[in-house]
Structures are given as C-alpha cells and as structure tokens.
Design a protein around this nucleic acid. Structure first.
Lengths: 144, 144
DNA sequence: GTCGGTGCAAAAGCTTTGCAAACCG
DNA sequence: CGGTTTGCAAAGCTTTTGCACCGAC
C-alpha cells in the first residue's frame, strides 16, 4: 500500500492541482487499498466527517484514471469499482459461485503480456484483470 | 462461425423453449459473428423486417449467458457487447489510441488459464478477454 | 487575478421490473 | 391447457452535462 503523501507529492510534481476533494478521494482509496465503488467512496468520505457529491467523485476518478493512477474494473457484483494502482499491479479471481475474490500476483499475468507483445506487436496496459471462474472450494464441493 | 441451426438444435436437446424472438437474436448473433450491443441487435433484427423490444433482447441475452452460450464484454467503447461463444473461444486486443480491435487466438490465453489453475486451484472460465493497450501501428507512430 | 475545479440540479443512458396478453409444447 | 415468454410502460440506477460560484496557485 502506498502512502497518500507520496501520491500527492507525485501529483504536485506533475503540475496537477490538489484540492481538498481530490485529497479526500485519494485518502479513502489509500486507506482502503481495495476496490471501491463510487458510492462506497462517498460513504467513507462522509464517515470521515466531510462531504462530496457523486459528480465530483466521478470527475476525480476520471482524472486519476487519465493519469494512470487508478484502475477501473467490473467485478461482476453489479457496478464498477476503482482501485489505486500500486507499484506492482495485481489481479483478481472472482468465483462465479460463491463470489469469493482472490488476489493474484502480476507475475502470473506477465507471460501473457509478453506473448501478446511478441506475437502481435501490441503493448498491453493490463492494470487490472478480473478473471471469472470457479474457486477451489466450490469446485471441490462439486458446484460446477 | 457456427450455424444457427446447430445452436437451435442444441438448445432444443437441452429442453429449452424456442420462440421466434430467441431465434431472431440467435440469427443476428450468428450472422454477425462479432460483438454486438443490445441496440445493434435490435437494429439488425429490424433490418430483417422483424421487430423486438429492448427488454426482450436483454432477457434473451441473459438466458443465453446463463447457458454459457454468449459472452458479455465491455470493449471500452461505452456499453456492453455480446457475442456467441464458438467452439474455440477467441479474444480481443483493443487499442486505446486508435480504437482498433485485433482478434487473438485462445492459445495465447491458455497458459494463463493453466497457470491460474495450477497455482490457485481456481478454474477460470475465460470466455472472452478484452485486453487494452497500444497497437503496433500507434506504438510505432510514437503515440504512447 | 486567472484558470480550473466544484456543487447543484437536471438529463441522458442503459438496464430491470410488473403485469396482462400471447405463445410454445 | 399449463406454464413461459413477450410487449409495453414505467421505474431505477449509474453516470454525464451545464453553468454559476468558489478555490488553487
């Protein structure tokens, strides 16, 4: 997990404006270190005693996404979730039966990245991958 | 590309009801052999002289998805697209710069599937993967 | 002081739901 | 015929947009 101070310093260096609202969103994303929906971000900001409307959160996330600092994923739980991209990206396995989410190291995905680049000359920017399927437990329970 | 007769026969064997509307959607998906949005499906049905409302299309797609016969993907062009899952799945590379979509054989993804299964005991059901990045042409043009 | 971000309200999409009528088997 | 599926209309939800005000630098 990265500290939000590091991120804020980084953004300032890039000449980005830092507002209270942006700081609030970054704080929440850092503290969570996990996937959050727009609504969850708003709730957590409010739990911190502040307030923020949805449009602003959307705009801030779009801005962070444009800077390559957040990933945007559909984990299949109905709705898009956002997460800060750390030093080393990681990915998730989502069980279609029980909904369990398992974290996967980027090294598992790296060969795919290399292969696509070698074969197609395509430079993938795989910030985050959500792979759906059946987890070990559900598979052993015979839940196809 | 699979023939729609094959699919319909398969569905009947599984005891699924076959209505005119379901046949229309299957026809369009077969003929396209490509990703289609709900709106595109509706337009093509209408071009065939028939008519179909959105809710019905959504219900039919949900039904086909439940049977594992269509994949549902967000190609980043704003909106979800659907495609029949053929004998051999294939995937797509989507260029973030020019929007070009390149088809990728499943053999490129198979190692990832195996690796995830070996390491995590997770059985991925990767019907379709959309990988975002920069295509060869855009990369050579220096459009990072 | 200037440019850009935010808040509010409203709209725009896409997708889902409820219920009566039509249809498949 | 019985149980499903469809059509229509309406609502729900997330996300975007316009514009005046406020804030960062």
């Amino acid at each position: 997990m990265i500290s939000n101070d590091t991120i804020i310093a980084h953004l300032r260096e890039r000449g980005e404006r830092m507002t209270i609202q942006r700081r609030l969103v970054l704080d929440v994303l850092c503290a969570a270190g996990d996937h959050l929906s727009v609504h969850e971000i708003q709730t957590r900001v409010q739990q911190g005693g502040a307030d923020l409307n949805e449009p602003t959160i959307y705009r801030i996330l779009q801005w962070l996404k444009g800077l390559g600092m957040v990933s945007q994923t559909d984990l299949g739980h109905g709705g898009i979730v956002y997460e800060l991209i750390g030093e080393r990206p990681h990915h998730h396995l989502v069980c279609l039966v029980c909904g369990a989410v398992t974290e996967v190291d980027d090294s598992v995905v790296q060969p795919l990245r290399d292969r696509v680049q070698d074969l197609y000359g395509f430079h993938p920017r795989i910030d985050h991958l959500a792979l759906f399927g059946v987890c070990r437990a559900c598979h052993e329970r015979g839940a196809e």
